[in-house]
């Protein structure tokens, strides 16, 4: 696709000095710093407690979901504004009047927004993880997942909001996507509980709905997988919830599904963009 690399660069240049992007990125940097402050406090007040894997478990439980919430907000705002703003400002038409295809334009711009979202996700997730790992000496269960899954999670969220923003107005698209993410998170929790309790103790309908939630929007398991990978392997809390039947790590096929789902939704968004009149 000729011109895609140039359009990726153009997208990055446009966003690199855009306050809508730079201010949240700057604010995102604050979060790992705040986590660091929290950890400094824990280590100073009770060094023995800080050495316990259960403390790491608690800190992860407290801080990573918040990092995910902040990253979700950023992805929704950026993803919902990029293409609609390009179209309404006349820039999309300006670029497409050049010798580039709509696919190249879409791919270049979306890749640029994905790259920016990955930067923010990395700051929030990896910054928080790095702070926890630096201050609390413990052995993470699966560090590879902790590092890979936030990127899959970002891709799924961005794919959803990119598609929805091309179908409905911007603010409505943010509301819809946040609602989908919230419901998906809730259904993910329900699904975990349903898996933990014995067959028959949980309504089959609820079990089906919670499973369907994953297939409709598979971002939530990526977040759970990232947290599971970061959690201490030898925490007593971890052992307790495992003994209760809670699956600590979603199966690997869920990652593959999330990747395929994200690619398919990006493809749908590209198809929608190809049919959009840039009037």
């Amino acid at each position: 696709m000729k011109g895609m690399a140039a359009l990726f660069e153009a997208g990055m240049k446009q966003m690199s000095k855009n306050r809508l992007i730079t201010v949240p990125v700057g604010l995102a940097l604050l979060y790992p710093l705040l986590v660091t402050l929290l950890l400094t406090g824990i280590r100073t007040t009770d060094p023995g407690e800080a050495a316990s894997p259960d403390t790491a478990f608690g800190v992860i439980f407290m801080t990573v979901p918040m990092a995910a919430t902040l990253a979700t907000g950023f992805i929704m705002i950026l993803g919902s504004s990029l293409l609609p703003e390009e179209i309404s400002a006349g820039r999309a038409g300006y670029w497409i009047a050049q010798p580039v295809s709509r696919n190249s334009y879409f791919s270049g711009m979306t890749a640029a927004s994905f790259a920016v979202c990955c930067v923010v996700t990395s700051i929030l997730f990896y910054g928080t993880s790095a702070a926890i790992l630096a201050f609390l000496p413990y052995r993470p269960a699966a560090i590879v997942w902790a590092f890979a899954c936030p990127l899959f999670w970002t891709a799924a969220n961005l794919a959803l909001v990119t598609l929805v923003s091309l179908l409905i107005p911007r603010i409505a698209s943010i509301i819809v996507c946040l609602a989908v993410a919230g419901v998906s998170n809730f259904l993910g929790s329900v699904s975990q509980v349903a898996d933990a309790v014995p067959q028959g103790a949980f309504s089959e309908t609820v079990r089906v709905i919670s499973t369907a939630g994953f297939f409709i929007f598979p971002a939530d398991p990526m977040l759970r997988l990232a947290m599971a990978g970061l959690r201490p392997a030898d925490s007593s809390i971890q052992e307790m919830i495992t003994s209760m039947g809670f699956a600590t790590t979603p199966p690997a096929w869920q990652i593959a599904y999330a990747v395929v789902w994200s690619a398919a939704v990006f493809w749908l968004a590209a198809a929608r963009f190809r049919r959009t009149d840039l009037a």
């Binding site: 240049k13 690199s16 000095k17 400002a89 006349g90 820039r91």
Partner: peptide, 14 residues
């Protein structure tokens, strides 16, 4: 081909 649209908002930072 070159095209000058009637209305265009170039990225203000560029």
């Amino acid at each position: 081909v070159r095209y000058l649209p009637e209305i265009i908002r170039f990225p203000g930072n560029l």
